[in-house]
Nucleic acid binder design. Structure first.
Lengths: 168, 168
DNA sequence: TAATTTGTTCAAGTTTTTTTGAACAATCTG
DNA sequence: CAGATTGTTCAAAAAAACTTGAACAAATTA
């Protein structure tokens, strides 16, 4: 049981990618390993191949499934749960946006409301005016980000099924 | 010298936003403070208002300028450098993509090349075939992400200059 | 030139995040 | 049921990220 060199490199690629998306390294490693493999892997195989602990493997696999980045299959006549990577970029991006971006936008709405509240009972009219201008700007940003996300999902999915027209 | 309540709330909003973009909290606080203010602030004012150290202020201001999120002005007859926030979302997003996303895409190209290399001198033809399929998938993802970024810049900028049509 | 102002650097300290592994549940098997 | 297998939880350890502040450099002023 071992990893090929190119698999090590690919896993490292995903490790770094996870990091830059704000996810733990181990999530990237686990996804990367499953991405490389054709056959589903069980938790103990993931642990052994990556040299990570039971806890990391268990939590990582759960989080990745929650993100829609992996899914599990049960081999008939076997108690073990085995995992495979989702490789459609559209699904990966969609899951990430749903679990990470959308909640942030929601929190943003709440915070904007809070600022409104603080602005209402404020007698310093200069600060109030300034605050209202800022509130408008933030609302505009929020609106634009909300508009953007659907486009991202759309554009990324676009050529999943289109074969490349030419070879360069 | 003090912060209004709404400013505290706005600064906290940016603190959290910075966090979720993978930037240090203090960067968010500094940007948030400048975002709230009409007049440029000098480093010592930023330090005092946010209760952060010289080091954090210096590094934060530098990084934010590098990102294009703030710019500096010199009051005539004063040695101090003072800072103002960039509030055009298009510029903010553009700077972020330039400094964060683009480098990652470049690193991705390098890693893909490395994987190619490892695949070339590999005699296990099964692993080789599998590796080549994965390499193709990754190349496709890279292409799609490269396509996406220009759209993001475009869509986000769109209504910066359009005034809101109505008041709600 | 000495003293002051403004800002940078980076080693050390602090805080936060991630990982580990032992204890615990739940499910199957003989 | 006792023992084996599979997987979860979470407190403590380890690692990573962030912040601090004292020492330093550069530019200015008296």
């Amino acid at each position: 049981m071992h990893l090929d060199q190119w698999e090590v490199a690919a896993i490292d690629l995903f490790l770094n990618a996870a990091n830059s998306f704000g996810l733990p390294k181990s999530y990237g490693q686990i996804y990367g390993l499953l991405f490389c493999r054709d056959l589903p892997l069980a938790m103990d195989e993931v642990m052994e191949l990556l040299n990570i602990s039971k806890g990391s493997a268990s939590q990582g696999l759960r989080a990745l499934r929650q993100l829609g980045a992996i899914s599990s299959v049960f081999a008939p006549g076997d108690r073990k749960e085995r995992f495979v990577a989702e490789i459609r970029l559209r699904k990966l991006v969609g899951g990430f946006l749903r679990e990470q971006a959308d909640p942030h936008l929601d929190k943003g709405v709440a915070r904007l409301k809070q600022i409104e509240t603080l602005l209402v009972d404020l007698d310093d009219s200069d600060s109030c005016k300034r605050g209202n201008r800022r509130h408008e700007i933030l609302s505009g940003w929020h609106r634009q980000m909300s508009r953007l996300l659907p486009w991202v999902k759309m554009i990324v999915g676009k050529s999943d099924r289109l074969p490349a027209k030419n070879k360069n």
